[in-house]
Amino acid sequence: MTLLPDLALVLLILTAAVWTVAVRDRRDAVIGFIVVGLLLSLAWVRLNAVDVALTEAAIGGGATGLLLLRACARLVPRPAESVLPHPAMWILTGLLCSVIAAGLAAIVVMPVEPPATLAPEAAANMGELGLGNPVTVVLLAYRALDTLLEKVVLVLALIGVWTLTPEQFWGGAPASLRAQQSSGALRLLAQVLPPVGVVIGVYLVWNGADHPGGTFQGGTVLAAMWLLVMMADLREPPEIRLHTLRLLVILGPVVFLVAGFAGFWIANGFLSYPPAFAKPIIVIVEAALALSIAVILGMLVAGPAARAPR
């Protein structure tokens, strides 16, 4: 039975998910969620989607997990969080959710034949661009508009988080990310790991053109290294009014926009690349995006400014 490992993995994922929702303590819930994220990246490998597996591990489990843990630490402790408000309410919701799940399951077990796919079209056009990783090609060429707009979403999210800055602190720095008890091990880790992490991040971006990896994964690893340094108290989060910070945030979107508009002159329109230069242009755009993503992710975890500017 080759399905056995998959069935076991699915069972684990669902158990962890139920635990995440049902457990009373919210910190346990966050840990449950991180476990689900890690298990899901295994599931993505089994679905032959290595790029997604890397993203899920880096962002789904990693960055989101860190964000939620930090929120837990800052929220005032509450006694228990009861899950069951009223029997009628939870029975009704349970029924609704079961119906939706049953509907989805019924559709999933009846796949269409032949499978609906854009893989042949994606493959047919890849030769033009000279890149080896089809997912990168979809993200930066075929569906570049989605990727560009999604970068704008990240910038808007950062502005949204900064909106919540109390008036007197505008322009200042976010609260320190320092761990509660500063441990020597964390400091050591923060001194040793970043050089290695930066190399891995750069490698993921560079390699992403032809092999699994790419902007988000690389950017997230870079962000993780930065966050580690801030958590070990080796560096404070920067003030949000800093010009350099602002420029780093918009670097990726701006380079992407410039490459997009350049297409009007050097290729045949917005976000189109001349075949001979497609690969270098895409790699430059990816590098700039990765840097911006690292900075935005780091600042999103750090949160709004909590100190007046110096």
Binding site: A144, L145, L271, S272, Y273
Partner: peptide, 13 residues
């Protein structure tokens, strides 16, 4: 109409 990057939908946008 504008076809982005010249990639015909449904592959493109």
């Amino acid at each position: 109409t504008y076809v982005l990057g010249g990639w015909q939908p449904p592959l493109g946008i």
